[in-house]
């Protein structure tokens, strides 16, 4: 019995020591060093334009305007909302329920998946006349895991170029250039996938249009 009490005391004090070391000292040390050395990344790699924060380099955004590239399908609408979305409806529920992340979690066999993709394809073909079904790469019609994916594939960008150019008034060449400038190739030529950053490309379009 004496052993039991002795162990309880030791367990309690060891727990307390580790709580302080792992739960406080460690995260504070990481924060201190990260804030000092990599301040930009440690605060979320935020992008500023016109003196305001317009987003983060690492997070995608929902774009509805035809003059911007649209990104992948998101179950959480990229945490993007307008004022009206925060006003409760008759049931007291808001369209925007606060910051979150995730996906629809539709199994491959779920009929809802087929329905959602088909509806999106029809919508996309309407908005982009001249594009054929077989040209649409799957990444553009499927939901990302996080709902915050900042990238689309290169093909997914190129099939939108014509529409973006027409709606924004920029030339096709200018838009192609923007796509090229925001392309991120595989690391070392093998790791990951070739892709473009949607927010980066759209910010370039935004700036170009302001210059005109």
């Amino acid at each position: 019995m004496r052993g039991f009490f002795e162990y309880t005391k030791q367990a309690l004090l060891v727990t307390f020591s580790l709580l302080v070391i792992c739960g406080l000292i460690y995260p504070f040390a990481v924060t201190g060093v990260a804030q000092a050395l990599f301040n930009h990344q440690a605060n979320g790699s935020l992008i500023e334009a016109d003196g305001k924060i317009v987003g983060s380099k690492n997070l995608g955004q929902a774009f509805t305007d035809p003059m911007y590239f649209s990104g992948r399908v998101s179950a959480v609408n990229y945490n993007v909302y307008s004022k009206e979305d925060t006003v409760p409806d008759v049931n007291g529920e808001t369209t925007y329920g606060g910051v979150s992340s995730g996906t629809f979690n539709y199994a491959p066999s779920n009929p809802e998946l087929k329905k959602r993709i088909e509806a999106d394809i029809v919508k996309f073909l309407d908005a982009n006349p001249g594009v054929k079904r077989a040209q649409i790469p799957a990444d553009l019609m499927t939901a990302s895991g996080s709902g915050l994916d900042p990238h689309i594939s290169i093909e997914a960008a190129y099939i939108q170029v014509k529409r973006v150019a027409q709606s924004s008034g920029l030339s096709v060449d200018e838009v192609n250039e923007i796509v090229l400038a925001n392309t991120e190739s595989r690391v070392l030529g093998v790791l990951g996938e070739d892709k473009i950053n949607v927010l980066g490309a759209n910010l370039d379009i935004y700036q170009k249009m302001k210059e005109k």
């Binding site: 990481v30 979320g44 790699s45 935020l46 924060i53 983060s56 955004q61 992340s101």
Partner: peptide, 29 residues
């Protein structure tokens, strides 16, 4: 952190998107 993972004690950020909407950005340690 170098790759872009946040490490901060500041509260979440709200960005003003170029389409005139808002985006909540969840931060933290």
């Amino acid at each position: 952190v170098v790759q872009g993972t946040p490490q901060t004690f500041n509260a979440n950020e709200t960005a003003q998107t170029i389409e005139g909407k808002m985006q909540d950005i969840a931060l933290g340690p």
